[in-house]
Design a protein around this nucleic acid. Structure first.
Length: 567
DNA sequence: CGGCTTTGACCGGCGC
DNA sequence: GCGCCGGTCAAAGCCG
C-alpha cells in the first residue's frame, strides 16, 4: 500500500507543480510577446502592462515557491512515515517469527507440513486464542490426549491467524505462509485449494464424507475453526447492502431475540468461494441493517467489492491483532511487543472485556453470541445518513459530514464529529487542502486512540493561536505517525482508508451498480485496482473493471422485510 | 430453461 | 439425554 501511496504522491506532486508552471509559462509567453511585438497602443500603456505582468509573474513565482516548499515538507513527512512504517513492519515480522520460533516445533511423521508443539509449550498457545470456547471444550474433554490437543491448538493458531488476515482479498500473510512449505509458484487452483482448506467453510456434511485416512486431517475436521466475523451495521432501506459482491440466498431463519428474519447468503462469484454473509435487521432499530461477513474470498474480486473486502479484512486483522497480542502478555517478549504495538494494549483490554462479556462501546462491540463464539468485529456505519450510502457522490458526503465508519471493536472511531478541532491546518498545501477532510478522520481516529491510551494525549483546548496551531499540527502529525507505525493492523485499516482517499482523488469514473444500499460506493468510491494487505508481495490481481451483479428483487426484498419467515 | 428465492426439514453444537 | 438454536440443505416454486 505504501508503494501505491508513494506513487500517487509522486504522480500528484509533479502534476500539481507542472500545472502551476504551465500557468506561469503562459503568462511569461504573453509578456514576452508583448515585449517583442509592441502593439499600436502608447508606450505608457505598454509599460504599465509590463509592470503588471511582472507583478503577476513575481506572485506566481512566489506561489510556486510556496507550493514547492510545501511539497518538500510533505515529501519529507511521507518519507518519515514510510521509514517508520518499514521499520515497524520489520519489527513486526521479527516478532511474528519470534513468536513462532520459541515453540519447539517438531514435524509430524505422518504429515511433514504439520508442526507439533512439544507438550511443555502448551501453556503458551492456550493464552493466544481469542475465541476461548474451543479451549473450554478442550478442557472439558479431558479424554483427548495432550498431543492431540497440541496438534489441534497449533492448527487453530496457524489457520486462524492467517485466515483473519486473509479475509476479503484472499491475500496471504507471508510471515506465516512462509512457514508452510507451499511451492512458491502455486497456481490459482492451488490457491483456491489452500483457501478452501484455510477457511474451513466446507460444509459439515462434506467434512464427514471426505475424511481422509491421515489422522491429522481428521483432527482438523473434528474441530473446525471458529471463524472471525466482521459485522457491518449500516442504515439501509433495501434488503441487503450492495457491497459489490454477488450473493445467492440459501436460507432464512428467525433467530432468537430478533423478530426480523436472518437471511443467509453465499458468494457466487466463484462456485467454490467459501464466503458467507448473514443479513438481518436490527431489532432495536429496523432501519439498521446488520451484515455479517465470514470467510475468505478465494477468487479475484470485482473492484467494487474490494473496498468492502479490504475494510472487513482490516477490521478482522485488527481483531486478530488483538487476539495475538494476548499471547504476548507477561514478561519477556511481551514487553517489546507492548512497546511496539501500543494499540495492542487496547486490543488486549478489549479482548479481556470480550472474554468476560463486559466489553461495550456505544454503537460498537466485540460481540459474541451465546451459542457460538465466533470472534466478531463490528463496523458501525450507522452514523451515515442513508442517502450517503446510496449515493455515488459519497465523497461529498465525507466532506460534508466528515463522517467515516467506526471501527468499533478497537474504538478507532472513524466518525469525526470533532473534525473541526482537527489541528490539520490548510496552508494552501495542494495535498493537505485537497484531502484535508479525508485525512481529517484518520488523524481524528489517531487522536481518539491516543487519547484513550494516554499516548501523547491531544487535549482539545479552545481554538489555539496560530503558533499553537503550528505546534499542534506538527505534534499531531508526529503522534499520528507514531500511531500509524505502532500497529500493523491499524496500518491495514489505514491502507483501506488511504486507498479510498487516493482512489477518490483520481477522478470519478468508476461507477458500479447502485442497488440496495451502495455501501461500496463510499467504501470504494472510485477505487482503482489496488493491492492491499500484501505484505511481502502476496497475491496480486487486477479485478475486472465491472461485473454484472445480481440484486435482490424488490418483491423478494419486500417479502423478506414483511416478515416472510420460516420455522 | 436456467438461475434464483423460498421454505420446511435436517444436522450438529451447546446448555441444562 | 433432551431441547433449543444457529446454520445448511434441497425440493419446489418463481421469474425473466
Amino acid at each position: 500500500m505504501e508503494d501505491d501511496f508513494k506513487e500517487d504522491r509522486r504522480v500528484d506532486d509533479p502534476d500539481s507543480s507542472s500545472h502551476k508552471e504551465e500557468k506561469v509559462g503562459t503568462k511569461r509567453q504573453y509578456s514576452e510577446n508583448d515585449d517583442v511585438k509592441p502593439s499600436s497602443s502608447s508606450k505608457q500603456n505598454n509599460l504599465s502592462h509590463t509592470k503588471q505582468d511582472d507583478q503577476v509573474l513575481e506572485s506566481a513565482r512566489a506561489e510556486m515557491g510556496e507550493v514547492r516548499e510545501e511539497n518538500q515538507r510533505l515529501k519529507m513527512r511521507l518519507d518519515r512515515i514510510m521509514k517508520d512504517y518499514q521499520t515497524l513492519q520489520m519489527q513486526f515480522h521479527d516478532i511474528v517469527q519470534h513468536d513462532h520460533q520459541p515453540k519447539k516445533l517438531t514435524t509430524n511423521p505422518n504429515n511433514p507440513h504439520l508442526e507439533i508443539e512439544e507438550p511443555d509449550q502448551l501453556v503458551s498457545p492456550s493464552l493466544r486464542r481469542f475465541s476461548c470456547d474451543v479451549r473450554k471444550d478442550d478442557e472439558k474433554k479431558k479424554s483427548s490426549s495432550i498431543e492431540k490437543n497440541a496438534i489441534r491448538e497449533d492448527h487453530h493458531e496457524q489457520i486462524d491467524y492467517r485466515d483473519g488476515l486473509n479475509l476479503g482479498l484472499g491475500c496471504k500473510f507471508e510471515a506465516s505462509k512462509s512457514d508452510a512449505s507451499d511451492p512458491p509458484n502455486s497456481s490459482f487452483e492451488e490457491q483456491q485449494k489452500d483457501d478452501a482448506a484455510d477457511t474451513n467453510w466446507i460444509p459439515n456434511k462434506v467434512l464427514k464424507t471426505s475424511k481422509s485416512v491421515g489422522g491429522d486431517d481428521e483432527v482438523l475436521q473434528q474441530n473446525p475453526v471458529k471463524k472471525t466475523r466482521v459485522s457491518v451495521r449500516a442504515r439501509c432501506d433495501a434488503s441487503t447492502m450492495n457491497d459489490g459482491c454477488q450473493w445467492r440466498k440459501y436460507g432464512q431463519k428467525i433467530s432468537k431475540g430478533n423478530p426480523c428474519p436472518r437471511a443467509y447468503y453465499r458468494c457466487t462469484i466463484a462456485p467454490s468461494c467459501p464466503v458467507r454473509k448473514q443479513v438481518q435487521r436490527c431489532a432495536e432499530d429496523m432501519s439498521i441493517l446488520i451484515t455479517t461477513y465470514e470467510g475468505t474470498h478465494n477468487h479475484p474480486l470485482p473492484i467494487s467489492a474490494t473496498a468492502m473486502a479490504s475494510t472487513t479484512s482490516a477490521a478482522a486483522s485488527m481483531l486478530l491483532s488483538g487476539s495475538s497480542s494476548r499471547s504476548q502478555a507477561g514478561p519477556g517478549p511481551s514487553t517489546t511487543a507492548a512497546d511496539l504495538h501500543g494499540l495492542n494494549n487496547y486490543y488486549q483490554s478489549a479482548a479481556d472485556a470480550y472474554k468476560s462479556s463486559q466489553f461495550y462501546i456505544p454503537g460498537s462491540s466485540f460481540s459474541s453470541s451465546s451459542h457460538n463464539s465466533h470472534p466478531t468485529i463490528t463496523l458501525d456505519l450507522t452514523s451515515f445518513p442513508p442517502s450517503s450510502l446510496s449515493s455515488y457522490n459519497s465523497l461529498s458526503h465525507f466532506n460534508r459530514f466528515s463522517s467515516i465508519p467506526k471501527f468499533s471493536s478497537t474504538n478507532l472511531n472513524f466518525s469525526s464529529s470533532e473534525s473541526s478541532t482537527m489541528p490539520w491546518s490548510n496552508n494552501g498545501s495542494s495535498f493537505l487542502s485537497y484531502n484535508r477532510n479525508q485525512i481529517g478522520f484518520l488523524s481524528n481516529s489517531y487522536q481518539n486512540y491516543m487519547h484513550k491510551n494516554n499516548i501523547n494525549p491531544i487535549i482539545r483546548p479552545p481554538p489555539p493561536s496560530p503558533q499553537q496551531q503550528q505546534f499542534l499540527q506538527e505534534s499531531t502529525i508526529a503522534a499520528a505517525t507514531k500511531a500509524i507505525t505502532a500497529d500493523p493492523s491499524f496500518q491495514s485499516a489505514l491502507a483501506a482508508a488511504l486507498t479510498k482517499i487516493i482512489g477518490d482523488t483520481n477522478g470519478a469514473d468508476q461507477r458500479g451498480n447502485n442497488n440496495g444500499c451502495g455501501l461500496t460506493t463510499y467504501l470504494n468510491n472510485n477505487t482503482s485496482s489496488t493491492n492491499l494487505h500484501q505484505p511481502g508481495g502476496g497475491l496480486s490481481f487486477v479485478a475486472p473493471a465491472s461485473l454484472p451483479f445480481s440484486i435482490p428483487r424488490s418483491s423478494a426484498a419486500s417479502k423478506a422485510e414483511n416478515g416472510d419467515q420460516t420455522n
